[in-house]
């Protein structure tokens, strides 16, 4: 059956709409001129300049510290949360509350956390951003792992126990491997979300330790430069890689089970 080419039109239009800005951004990052709006010639000089920007480097390091820490914490806590929700409670309310931080508006979470930190008299810094990111990162991991658990075969755990494994061994040797794809996907999600998270970081970080999004924001305030385009392109490359790896991984593990 041949479909009318007209029907393809909305599909491609959507794609163009989605990716035109990104393509422009990438192209402009290689612009030799200073104007971020008109392409005058190919050059890598903005990438060089970016490498020499200490502010950006500092921001990047801060962001990576937060992202890695938050990913590690979120993955462990989120997985435990998901397993706990699946195994030990029948409450749908608890279930919903477990993943609520993932859908809560960032602003609400940010203000809430700031107030909370102030109440417990916690100093702001990278640790406070890390904890804040863990709050929603954990919720995302829990949500992803939870769906995986729903499809998991209960009898595998029973089989493990039947064969003489203690509940702990069963969890390590059977439950975790089964959940692995979900956990990995959740971890990647938490990582990427943390890297480009702005609102919460803006509220909960100390002025001395800005994360990369905050650095970019402060740079943009004085106008968009091709340097920022270059930075955005690099971030884009990282995101793409992560998404592709995640896809590969889930496909790989799915073919196994």
């Amino acid at each position: 059956m041949r479909r009318s080419p007209l029907l393809h039109l909305p599909f491609w239009a959507t794609y163009v709409f989605l990716y035109t800005p990104i393509v422009v951004l990438v192209v402009m990052s290689f612009n030799s001129g200073k104007s971020p709006y008109s392409f005058t010639g190919f050059s890598l000089k903005w990438y060089g300049k970016l490498a020499g920007n200490d502010l950006v480097k500092e921001g990047l390091v801060n962001t990576l510290i937060v992202a890695v820490g938050c990913t590690a914490l979120s993955t462990v806590l989120g997985t435990l949360l998901a397993v706990g929700l699946a195994r030990h409670t029948r409450s749908r309310l608890l279930d919903a509350l477990g993943v609520l931080p993932a859908v809560l508006p960032d602003l609400v979470l940010a203000i809430g956390l700031l107030v909370f930190y102030a109440t417990v008299k916690m100093t702001l810094g990278l640790h406070s951003v890390l904890l804040a990111h863990t709050v929603f990162g954990m919720a995302f991991v829990a949500a992803v792992v939870r769906t995986r658990l729903v499809h998991a075969d209960n009898s595998l755990e029973e089989a493990s126990r039947d064969l003489g494994a203690t509940p702990f061994t069963t969890f390590l040797r059977v439950t975790l491997p089964q959940l692995a794809p979900g956990i990995a996907a959740g971890a990647l999600l938490a990582f990427t979300l943390s890297v480009d998270e702005f609102v919460i970081a803006f509220f909960t970080s100390a002025p001395a330790t800005p994360t990369l999004p905050i650095v970019i924001y402060s740079m943009v305030r004085f106008g968009v430069t091709p340097e920022i385009n270059a930075l955005a392109t690099l971030l884009l490359a990282v995101s793409f890689t992560v998404v592709i790896v995640a896809q590969r991984m889930t496909r790989l593990t799915e073919s196994l089970s």
Partner: peptide, 14 residues
């Protein structure tokens, strides 16, 4: 000292 063969076999896929 009892073992069960599951209806679904419950073999560990990994």
């Amino acid at each position: 000292p009892v073992n069960l063969m599951f209806q679904s076999y419950a073999l560990f896929p990994h």
